[in-house]
Amino acid sequence: MITIKNLDKKIKNQQSLKISNLNFNKGYIYSILGHNGSGKSTLLKILYNIEDFQSGKITINTEDTNIDAVYENMAYNPQQNRFLSGSLKDNFDYIYKYSKNKDLLSKDKLDNLLKEFELDMKLDTNVKRLSGGEQGKAQFIRTLIMNKNFILLDEPMANMDLKTIKKVEEKILELKEEKKTVILVTHDFIQAKRLSDYIVFMENLNYINTYNCEDFFEKYGI
């Protein structure tokens, strides 16, 4: 379980992001919804220790958050694709050669994922020459092979076609079946309705509430 209490994050030329009390429980899918600039992506970056905050407390399974706790428990799929130079194969080989992550999925499972997402024939391609959708698929696969209990996904399907979106959604539901917690930032309210157990609603850099998915869409008439 991730718990956030009395968080205050100062944002340049804007009001602070404030979250009084927010929990993410094990084994559920949470979609974070809100208008642009509401603080959705910033919240994921704070959880993954990419951005700091000025006051408040975040705990992971009752342990105060720190770099070691974050990397032990979380995998993060950022909104912007990030790769090392070289081929797609080089990028995956680097992970298996140098990562200290003891939970990595096996290379056989990586191979299966590459086939499922139709990237197995792209392994020798320089990542810079992959399309935006292909990069998105590679980044999502990279997140899956981290094999963590909390998966943070920031608009992972933004550049994907409908066929790939369906495949990613299937994988997200499989993560839930494995009792993992998925925290998904999305602008797609219909997708959130399909996938989510809970909706975390944010507005104007404030956490409004966590709703049961059905209750949220009934309340806001969506």
Rank of each mutant, 00 (worst) to 15 (best):
R82Q: 15
S16W: 11
N25S: 05
S20D: 14
K5M: 02
E72R: 14
T186K: 08
N126L: 11
F216C: 07
E218G: 04
F140Y: 10
G27I: 07
I32R: 00
N13M: 11
T125G: 03
F83L: 04
I151K: 04
Q191H: 11
M121P: 01
T143E: 05
G133D: 11
A138M: 10
D103L: 08
D64T: 15
K100S: 10
K5L: 06
G56A: 11
S85N: 06
M1A: 06
K148H: 04
N112Q: 10
S16C: 02
D111K: 12
Y98L: 09
L33K: 04
D161H: 09
Y207M: 11
N36M: 00
Y211S: 06
K163T: 14
Y98K: 05
K219D: 13
K102R: 01
V127E: 06
K89Q: 15
H187V: 06
I46W: 03
K9M: 02
N204Y: 03
I145K: 03
L33H: 00
Q139D: 02
S106A: 12
F53R: 07
L144Q: 00
F140D: 07
K45F: 10
V185D: 06
S31L: 01
T143R: 04
K167A: 09
N91S: 12
L184I: 12
L119F: 03
I190N: 13
N206L: 11
S31I: 00
Y30N: 02
K18C: 06
K89D: 14
F53E: 09
V185H: 05
D93R: 04
C213M: 06
K18M: 09
T65K: 15
K179I: 05
D197L: 10
S16Y: 06
D103V: 01
F201C: 08
S20K: 14
K219T: 14
M146I: 00
K102W: 01
F117A: 04
H187E: 08
K163H: 12
K45D: 00
L22C: 10
V127Y: 04
I151C: 07
K100G: 07
N13G: 03
N159I: 04
N81V: 12
S31H: 05
Y211P: 05
N61V: 07
N73F: 08
V182Y: 02
I190K: 13
M160L: 15
V185C: 07
S85H: 09
S99W: 12
N159E: 07
I11R: 10
K109G: 01
D52S: 10
T62R: 13
E177R: 15
L43P: 09
I32H: 00
I4H: 07
A138D: 09
S31G: 00
K180H: 08
N13R: 11
R142C: 07
P156K: 03
Q15N: 13
L162D: 11
L113M: 06
K45W: 01
L44G: 02
D68L: 15
D52A: 12
E51C: 13
S38M: 00
K12T: 08
L195D: 09
E203Y: 03
N36C: 08
I11S: 02
K12W: 02
